[in-house]
Structure formats: C-alpha cells, structure tokens
Design a protein around this nucleic acid. Sequence first.
DNA 1: AAGAGGCCCTGATAGC
DNA 2: TGCTATCAGGGCCTCT
Length: 287
Amino acid sequence: MPELPEVEIVRQSLNKKIKGKIIKKIIVRNRNLRLKVPTGFEDCLKDQKIIKVNRFSKYLKLFLSNNYICIIHLGMSGTIHLVQNKKKNKITNMSFYHSPFLPKKHNHVEIFFDNLKLVYNDPRRFGFFEIIENYKLLEKRFDKFGPEPFSPKFNSKYIFSFLKGKQKNIKSFLLDQKFVSGIGNIYASEILYLSKIKPDKKGKFLKKEECKKIEINSRIILLDAIKKGGSSIRNFKSIIGKEGNFQKNFKVYQREGLKCKRNKCNGVVKKKNISNRSSFFCNSCQK
DNA sequence: AAGAGGCCCTGATAGC
DNA sequence: TGCTATCAGGGCCTCT
C-alpha cells in the first residue's frame, strides 16, 4: 500500500487517534518481518505515552514519553488497523474485538491502549519495526536519505547536478531514496507523465527545464494524492477502513492500452519493465 | 562509483 | 476444479 502519501494518511489518523494515549500492553504474535521485531521491543513501549506521530519519507515515527522513537515501515503490504474496544478496561479480553476490516492472518503486532488497539498486519513481511534510542540517533538513521519532494533542497539545480553524467534512467532515480525520499512506483510514473518525460530517458539527457518540471510535479502529485486520501489499490484502506480516491486520478498507472488522457494527444499508454518494476507512460506525449 | 539484477515473502489473478 | 506462472505499493545486498 505505501508510498509517501499513503503513509502520511496513516500518520494523520494515528496522530488523531493515539496521540496522548498510554500504551498498556504489547503483543508480538510473529516477530518475523524484514527485520526481526527487536528483543525488548515490548518493554520499551510498555507504559509509555505517545507524544506525537511524525513521518519521514515512507517511515512512521512514534515519539514516546521515554524519549525513544519507534519507527514503523509498511514495506509493500503492511497495514495498520485501529480497533475500538466497546467495553472499557477489558484490554486483555480478545473477544471484544470484532472489526470487519481486521484481517484474520498476518497480524504481527498488537499495541493496546485503554479502549482501543493498534494492529500491524503484513502478509509479505517486507515491513519492520525499529527502536531508536534518542534524537541524535534518529537523525543519523536518515542522514543518507535524499530530501523529500517538499523540501526546498529538492530543486531543479539539485536534480540537474545529481543527474549530470548519469547513465541510469530517470524512473529509477525517482525510486532511489538517496536521490529523493518518498516516491514509489505508482507516483514515479504519474510524475513523469505530468512532466512529459519518458521513464527510460537517461539522467544525463534531462534538460534544466525538465528538472524544473520534476521538482514542481513531484510536489503536485504527492500533495494531490494526500488530499485525496492516498491510492486505494489492492485493498489499501486507512486505519479506520476508509478508502482513498487518488487511484481515480491515475493518468498512466495501470492504464496499459488505454488512450492518453492529455488533451489533443492521440497516444496510448504503454507498460514497460524498467529496472524490474513496471513503468507506465504515453508513447506520444512523453519525450 | 555506478548500475544491473537477485532476493526477501504471501496472495491475487490469469491462462491452460 | 486445480495446476502453474506472473505480478504486486519497497529496499537491501552482491556482483561486475
């Protein structure tokens, strides 16, 4: 489910629902994720208050009252569900939870609050949890990452100089978190479509104006996706079961064989495998 | 250093 | 119906 916009949607709802709440109990049902859920994870979280929920790129950051930070990455298939407990103070009694949205399999981690619990589900197990011990280490954790598209650092000058002389195609660069943080496979195709740039164009061939378009359109696409609640494909729903709407705005992603949506363009959307990921683009207006 | 490719894993869907 | 193959929103690692 998760590129930056979907993670941001999760962050917003978490911040609304669990900020200020105290963690009463943690159950790790299956520690096997991309990284093992760390030993001592439960002890670290128990009795702590959630100060706030932040996000960098596709990573959620739960700030705890003991100054530790819990990082959650959703990988390809991670989802977070919040389930209300109808009867107060019955946090140990599982029979109180009946959510139509809660999957039956692959619920790895459960975090209990007074009258609700957070459930982390991840069939493919590409997601993970991490505990960071202080702010300094948190900074270090992300210091190799490129800027988010919203950062002033992500400007045409930076983009142009990063791509200078590079053989690799621009689509791969948009997925490269050392270049820019938060863009994934869906939005990379959409950004390039809006910028009228072919995904397999080599970095070194991008003009200054094209770099400017990538700067601007990355922000436009991601902000629009956030505004529309993210993209609901393959069952992505927010933590309270609400679907996003951005998939209705896809111009090229999953539109192989269909007509280009650009005004007066007679092109057709093509699908091409680039660096082992599907790319969608118009064969006419993207150059 | 940069770039290509493989790999971690389960589940949905398509094709026979 | 049931098999096999392919593909899926990510990111790390290794090899050249």
